[in-house]
Amino acid sequence: MTAAAPETVETRDAPALEAAFEAAVAADERIEPRDWMPDAYRATLVRQMAQHAHSEIIGMQPEANWITRAPSLRRKAILMAKVQDEAGHGLYLYSAAETLGVGRDELLDKLHSGRQKYSSIFNYPTLTWADVGAIGWLVDGAAITNQVPLCRCSYGPYARAMVRVCKEESFHQRQGYELLLALSRGTGAQHAMAQDAVDRWWWPSLMMFGPPDDASAHSAQSMAWKIKRHSNDELRQRFVDICVPQAESLGLTLPDPCLRWNEERGHYDFGPIDWDEFHQVLRGNGPCNEQRLARRRKAHEDGAWVREAALAYAAKHTGAEPEEAAK
């Protein structure tokens, strides 16, 4: 249900409400839109769902960059369907955010004016066709690692949106892997193209899990609220462990000389991440920040007359042709 902003409750005192909220979260119950919730919980959710939705929408651009140049009709169909899914996922997530009483237009305004962020990974360019594969394998792989636990997030509408997103996204990663495999096993030029893409996307993908746990501003509270279920470093490690054998099967090398199995930890060790680059890209100094935002703004502004026209038409005609009653 997306209806209605929460009501102000005066009949029950705040401590009792807060206790009820905490008890529900502790019991792994879901919080639903009209339930009382702490302001900070609400703000965190709106921020996170909006950022997630924005990432889906901005994330269409680097891949859409290759739709018109896809090298086979099969790949073209797959890519179009994938980019379409991203629009769909953005829509599911904006809907989830709207259950907390913020409109999509308001959120889009915040994206367009730079007041809300999207995932920094989309500020990197797609320079070759192989980048489409690397995004599917690594970027979507990292996203799935992040997202699967969100299906159990304490906020009901977000968890439900994520169930749908994860279900649909399972093809995204596989198509990327398959695409890279075809390149890796293809001509020398194709193999080189695939390796180059992996070289460029590997480190930014690791950054997708966010800053290390000891430097992550929001992590601890989000974990306590069960918005988040695992720490950034935990998820990053899980991702590295999954990717190493996958890269071997691909016949491609991950660009990290420190990567080796650590028997004692039962995990792969990996080299230091360039957090300076991460923070710079986050602050706007990535290779594509301006381009991505400008294109998004332009699409929105160019479409304004269309959205106005549809509203004007609806105002003239509503009620004229009633839809058949529900049966």
Binding site: S95, D105, A161, R164, H317
Partner: peptide, 30 residues
């Protein structure tokens, strides 16, 4: 804003014999 389309709730019958269930929402002018 003036161009914000209203919100609609969507219910889907997944196959014949089952009831419509809530799937999510979307925006549309009518």
């Amino acid at each position: 804003s003036t161009t914000d389309w209203p919100l609609w709730e969507v219910f889907v019958r997944s196959r014949r014999g089952l009831a419509h269930t809530h799937a999510g929402s979307l925006h549309a002018p009518d």
